[in-house]
Design a binder for these strands. Structure first.
Length: 129
DNA sequence: AGCGTGACGAGTA
DNA sequence: ATACTCGCCACGC
């Protein structure tokens, strides 16, 4: 690892576009790293992942998840440290904040980039208690 | 102009 | 469920 931190005003353009998409994801919905890359039409899941790792702190990064439905990508402690419940958090997010590593119901929570349906009238991630 | 590096993804064992 | 592969591609060196 040797990616150093650039000034916020010196983000690579690709990174800026990734962060833009992340901000578009409605509360209560998620996109996978691959979804974001596909939506952008450039780069791949790994590129999106790195962007989020380096610059994700400025956007709702918890709405970008792994394809297998894991909410936390790996650096769980780091994630928990930055965990926020801006507005209406996913129920799973709440659990994550309590130390669990949840697996989202991707069938419901995944956002295809279409209609911006969040909590109002839309589906919510299922509680799998 | 390479080369190493991944908050990934899908496949396989 | 875990633990490996291999392909992917922008970016810093």
């Amino acid at each position: 690892m040797s990616e150093e931190s650039l000034p916020a005003d010196a983000l690579p353009e690709y990174a800026e576009r990734v962060l833009e998409v992340a901000e578009l994801i409605p509360p209560g919905r998620v996109m996978t790293y691959g979804d974001v890359a596909e939506w952008l039409g450039e780069g791949g899941p790994r590129q999106v992942g790195r962007v989020m790792a380096l610059y994700g702190g400025a956007v709702p990064w918890w709405r970008v998840v792994r394809a297998d439905g894991h909410l936390l990508p790996g650096h769980e402690l780091r994630a928990l440290g930055h965990y926020r419940t801006e507005g209406t958090p996913l129920r799973e997010a709440s659990r994550a904040a309590e130390g669990h590593v949840p697996r989202l119901d991707m069938k419901r929570a995944r956002w295809d980039g279409g209609e911006r349906t969040g909590w109002d009238g839309g589906e919510r991630a299922e509680d799998h208690t």
